[in-house]
Design a protein around this nucleic acid. Structure first.
Length: 233
DNA sequence: CCAGACGTTGTT
DNA sequence: GTCTGG
DNA sequence: CCAGACGTTGTT
DNA sequence: GTCTGG
């Protein structure tokens, strides 16, 4: 699945990859956790520009009576999201790209859990497939939320975990964002994802308050990955 | 008809 | 064990 | 996803 | 909102 990720790439690289024309990307993040604000990229109209917007991780469906359901809707199974009451409206009308440059998975070793940071070999950013929603109670403020689609893990990652986020190669971004077309199930096949490499990291990442570069540091003394350096201020 | 759920993950 | 908060 | 709380009373 | 269960 995907319950924690990183987003530390230079802002310019992200704007280029996602064709983001405007909007807030926020600061670099090493340890993005559910319930927090994160940037997502989406079109507001069919032929409009791609805009970035900070939204809360954990989707709150339009019909929800209160926002607490979002705590549990941080992922949506790509195999069933088109039909599920919680996701189908967003699946039809509100698809988005969730920028990341790595995600975390915990390998269950019985007596302990070993976290891994999974990223591109050179640390390039990539797009996770997401859905977003706008929710409000009565005359309350608008709450924007999103969820990340999951799929079966690739063979490479299977030893760590059997699910992973749907990662869209650049040539699939437009198809996913085009709400006029029904997205093809082909998009969700993890085999289409760009090459990913898991690196064991310390349990420093376990604590959401630890939002720093230590989260990404390989345990085995491997050299830091190029391209993942924090953005210059 | 109304009431109540609506989800994922992992583990058993 | 289970829920909430991050 | 993991971490951390999980309760009441009365008093300040 | 929409579907399922009673």
């Amino acid at each position: 699945m995907c319950g924690r990720y990183s987003l530390t790439s230079p802002e310019e690289a992200m704007r280029r990859l996602f064709d983001i024309q405007a909007g807030d990307i926020g600061p670099p993040r090493y340890n993005l956790a559910p319930s927090q604000l994160a940037p997502v990229a989406r079109r507001e109209s069919a032929d409009g520009p791609v805009l970035a917007r900070l939204m809360r991780w954990g989707l709150v469906p339009g019909w929800a009576r209160d926002e607490s359901i979002g705590q549990r809707l941080i992922n949506a199974r790509s195999e069933t999201a088109a039909e599920k009451p919680s996701f189908r409206a967003a699946f039809r009308q509100r698809r988005c790209l969730v920028p990341a440059d790595g995600f975390y998975e915990w390998r269950n070793l019985g007596s302990r859990k070993q976290p891994y940071w999974i990223s591109r070999p050179e640390g390039e950013p990539f797009a996770m497939a997401g859905l977003w929603e706008s929710w409000r109670r009565d005359d309350g403020p608008e709450l924007l939320t999103f969820t990340i689609l999951t799929t079966e893990a690739t063979e490479d990652l299977r030893p760590i975990h059997h699910r992973m986020p749907v990662i869209l190669p650049p040539e699939a971004h437009a198809a996913w964002l085009d709400q006029a077309e029904t997205p093809s199930a082909e998009l969700f096949v993890s085999g289409r994802a760009p090459e990913l490499r898991p690196r064991a990291v310390s349990t420093h990442v376990n604590r959401p308050a630890n939002d720093d570069a230590e989260c990404l540091r390989p345990l085995d003394g491997e050299a830091p990955v190029a391209g993942t350096q924090p953005r210059l201020l």
